[in-house]
Design a protein around this nucleic acid. Structure first.
Length: 348
DNA sequence: AACGGGCCCAACCGCCCGAGG
DNA sequence: GCCTCGGGCGGTTGGGCCCGT
């Protein structure tokens, strides 16, 4: 006898999420923060199981998610990390803060696996013709083992030293409820933007009913702080089911303004401004050392938790170092830097 | 233009783990 | 220590889309 399902299967909607459902979910989470998923369907009136709500949020609606167009840089990281960690997508995703584990998993299954197979095939052909130019299987295995050993050592080091340094890049596991954070700067992409992109597609199918939304949703920038959804201010869990967003609510939701954008851009370095593109519309810079979690709000209305998470301190190594190491595994100095972070991670 | 096969990815499923009673 | 529950994770699926014929 297995565990009962997380929700009553009867009356639970399955399949693709509609923009309306997304808006209801985002508006609820904006008000109450992510978490307590069990209560979400009840309090929002969504005919979805709690798990479905959580997945929709973590994999699609959560702020800070970058979708599609994996860069070569990201590709290399995924390949290397997969070799080191195996199919631990959540762990891999923790090193790619803007990507979800699901995204990485899909990308691996659909693109990288094939790519590696092809490369492996090419490599095989080349090695048969000129064995002196390629690494033998045995060498490759030894090198992989060395890599794994190095990774273990680095993580070990990180654990033992994390108590005295906070200069880590605290990228939160995207699969958790918290948002990606960086120590000095922080980017925060609005859920409204994710929905606006969704809506743009949706509008193609139903342009009449929501023309005003469509017009607004084509504007690239938005302010999460100004996100105002028709139902959010008038509903609470104790009041029971939320109503569907009104057209006015939708309008306000997608009434983007650029004031925050300009403020942010002024305070961003050149590199950071590069990241602030229409593609990444709605990305904000917020205060350092604030991890966005439920139950706390800063002066801008963002949910946050002070300080760096325990998880970050215990499991992560400086990203730049790691990247250097991943992309240049002949770089002895970088490996030594990693090795110097701390000791004691035999648990890996 | 119609059809079929392959690809892609959002979502689901089932197992596992940790927290709390 | 046991049980229940909520949530996380990895594997899998299915439906829509694309492309070649």
């Amino acid at each position: 006898m297995g565990r009962p399902p997380c929700c009553d299967k009867i009356g639970v909607k399955k399949g693709p999420w509609t923009p309306e459902e997304d808006i209801i979910l985002v508006s609820y989470i904006q008000e109450h923060g992510p978490g307590n998923w069990r209560a979400v369907p009840t309090n929002t009136g969504l005919l979805r199981c709690s798990k479905s709500c959580r997945l929709r949020w973590t994999n699609y609606l959560r702020p800070g998610i970058k979708r599609g167009n994996f860069t070569e840089h990201e590709e290399k990281m995924i390949i290397h990390l997969q070799a080191l960690l195996g199919n631990r997508w959540a762990a891999i995703a923790s090193y790619l803060p803007q990507r979800t584990d699901n995204d990485i998993k899909n990308y691996w299954n659909t693109h990288l696996q094939k790519k590696l197979k092809i490369q492996g095939h090419d490599h095989k052909e080349k090695s048969s013709s000129s064995s002196s130019q390629s690494i033998s299987k045995g060498q490759w295995e030894r090198r992989l083992q060395t890599d794994i050993h190095t990774a273990k050592q680095a993580l070990s080091d990180a654990l033992s030293l994390n108590k005295i340094t906070t200069d880590f890049s605290p990228n939160i596991n995207p699969s958790t409820n918290s948002f990606p954070v960086q120590t000095s700067t922080n980017t925060y992409a609005s859920s409204a933007d994710n929905i606006s992109r969704l809506l743009q597609n949706w509008m193609k199918n139903s342009p009449k009913s929501s023309q005003s939304i469509s017009n607004n949703s084509t504007t690239s920038q938005c302010s999460f702080n100004n996100l105002s959804i028709g139902t959010s201010s008038s509903s609470s869990p104790s009041e029971g089911t939320m109503n569907a967003p009104t057209p006015e609510g939708l309008d306000s939701l997608f009434s983007f303004n650029s004031s925050y954008n300009s403020d942010v851009s002024q305070s961003m370095s050149a590199d950071e401004v590069v990241a602030f593109t229409p593609e990444n519309a709605g990305i904000f810079q917020v205060e350092s050392n604030k991890q966005y979690l439920p139950n706390f709000k800063d002066e801008n209305g963002f949910l946050f938790q002070e300080g760096i998470s325990k998880q970050n301190l215990e499991t992560e190594v400086p990203l730049t170092l790691l990247e250097n190491w991943l992309f240049d595994d002949s770089n002895v100095q970088t490996q030594e830097e990693l090795m110097g972070i701390g000791r004691g991670m035999e648990w890996l």
